[in-house]
Design a protein around this nucleic acid. Structure first.
Length: 348
DNA sequence: AACACGGGGAC
DNA sequence: GTCCCAGTGTT
C-alpha cells in the first residue's frame, strides 16, 4: 500500500472534527487559513468562530473598519494578518465582484496569501492539484524520506516542495493535503512523535535510522532584542490618555498608552529627567505608583514593561495622543500586555 | 538571504 | 529556558 493511501486511511479514522472541514466555501477556508498561520488550532478556533459570526461573507468583511478587525483579532498576534485580510476582502469585492477566487494563480496575488495559503485554499475548495508545504509537511517529509537539507534554506524549500508535489495524490489533492498536515500535527509531532502507532513507520527513514529527533533540520536561530517600555497612565476624570501606534513597529495601528522607550532599565529619577518625559508631562512629576516590571516575550524581542501612574496632566499632547472614556477601552484593539495592565487596574 | 512580525502551549 | 505552531511581507 502506498504512502498516500496509508495516509488517507489514517486520516479518515483519526481526523479531528474542525468546522472549516465542513465547507468548500473559499471565503470560509481563507478565514481559517489566515487565522491558523503560525497559530495552533486550539488557539485559533475561537477567533475563527467569532470572525465567521461577525463577518459571514466577504462582503461584510470588506465593509468593516480596520479598528473593528484589529479589535476582534486582539490577543491572536501577527496583526498584519488582520490588516491584510481587510485589503484582500476589499480587492475581492472590487475586482472579483465579491466572488472569492479559488484558483492558485488568482489567490497568490492577494495580500496576506502566500504560497502555502494559496495552495491550501485552491486544493481544499476546488481540488486544484498542488501540494501544500507547511511546518507539518516539512517535518513529515524530512523524517519519512530522511531529508537533512535545512527546511528554511532556499535549496531546502525547493526540494521539499518538489518532494511534496511528487507525493501528492492527484485524484484527491485536497484530502491528501489535509491528511499530511493532520498527520504532522497529531502523530508525527515535533516532540515525542507517536512512532509506536505510526502506520508508515516501516518505510520511514527517521524511524529506521533512529533519526526522529534530529529531523527536520532548521537553521538560523533568532536573535532576541531587549526593549524597555515605560507606559504612563494618566487620567482626567473618567477619561484615560491613550496613544495610537504608527504602522512601523510592533502592534501597528493598535492602541496603547503614552510610551517612553529606553535602552536600559532606568530609575524613576533618570526617567523623569528625560527630555521626552519633561516635554510631555513637564518638570513637576506627581508620581502615584510604579507597577512592577512585567516581561513580555515576542519572537524577536523581550519587552520589559512597566506602568507608571501619574497624577499629572500632559503639558503637551502629541499628535497620536487622545483622551477617551475608560469604558471605551473595551472597543480599542490593545496589545496583550497593555490589556493585562489595564484590566487589572480598571476591572475590564 | 535575512529579518520583522505575537502569543501560547508543550517539554 | 527552548522550540514551534495550517507563514507572509519587506528590505
Amino acid at each position: 500500500m502506498s504512502f498516500s493511501n496509508e495516509l488517507l486511511k489514517w486520516y479518515q479514522q483519526n481526523k479531528r472534527d474542525l468546522p472549516w472541514r465542513h465547507t468548500s466555501n473559499p471565503y470560509i477556508i481563507w478565514l481559517s487559513e489566515i487565522i491558523l498561520q503560525q497559530t495552533r488550532v486550539e488557539q485559533g478556533l475561537p477567533y475563527f468562530q467569532r470572525f465567521l459570526e461577525q463577518y459571514p461573507d466577504v462582503l461584510s468583511f470588506a465593509a468593516a473598519a480596520e479598528d473593528d478587525i484589529l479589535k476582534l483579532w486582539q490577543g491572536l498576534g501577527y496583526y498584519s494578518r488582520g490588516r491584510n485580510m481587510l485589503k484582500t476582502a476589499r480587492t475581492v469585492v472590487d475586482n472579483y465582484n465579491g466572488s472569492f477566487p479559488q484558483k492558485y494563480d488568482d489567490l497568490i496575488k492577494l495580500k496576506g496569501i502566500g504560497e502555502y495559503t494559496a495552495t491550501a485554499i485552491a486544493s481544499f475548495s476546488a481540488n486544484e492539484a498542488k501540494a501544500v508545504v507547511d511546518g507539518n509537511v516539512y517535518r513529515v517529509l524530512a523524517r519519512y524520506f530522511g531529508i537533512d537539507e535545512p527546511i528554511n534554506s532556499p535549496k531546502g524549500k525547493k526540494l521539499f516542495q518538489q518532494t511534496a508535489n511528487e507525493l501528492l495524490n492527484k485524484q484527491q489533492p485536497g484530502l491528501h493535503n489535509q491528511a499530511m498536515m493532520e498527520f504532522g500535527a497529531m502523530l508525527c509531532k515535533p516532540k515525542n512523535p507517536a512512532c509506536g502507532i505510526c502506520p508508515v513507520r516501516e518505510g520511514c527513514y527517521a524511524f529506521l535510522h533512529n533519526a526522529v529527533n534530529s529531523l527536520p533540520v532548521k537553521l538560523n536561530k533568532v536573535k532576541v532584542r531587549d526593549r524597555y517600555f515605560n507606559y504612563f497612565l494618566v487620567t482626567d476624570g473618567d477619561n484615560i490618555l491613550m496613544n495610537k501606534r504608527d504602522d512601523k513597529d510592533i502592534w501597528a495601528n493598535m492602541y496603547d498608552l503614552p510610551l517612553v522607550e529606553t535602552d536600559t532599565l532606568l530609575t524613576p529619577e533618570e526617567l523623569f529627567y528625560l527630555p521626552m518625559v519633561k516635554e510631555i508631562f513637564g518638570t513637576d512629576i506627581k508620581l502615584v505608583e510604579i507597577l512592577p516590571l512585567k516581561k513580555h516575550i515576542l519572537t524577536h524581542q523581550r519587552l520589559h514593561v512597566r506602568l507608571i501612574i501619574l497624577n499629572n496632566q500632559p503639558v503637551k499632547l502629541k499628535e497620536q495622543y487622545f483622551f477617551t472614556p475608560i469604558e471605551n477601552l473595551q472597543k480599542l484593539a490593545l496589545p496583550k500586555i497593555v490589556f493585562i495592565f489595564l484590566k487589572n487596574i480598571f476591572n475590564l
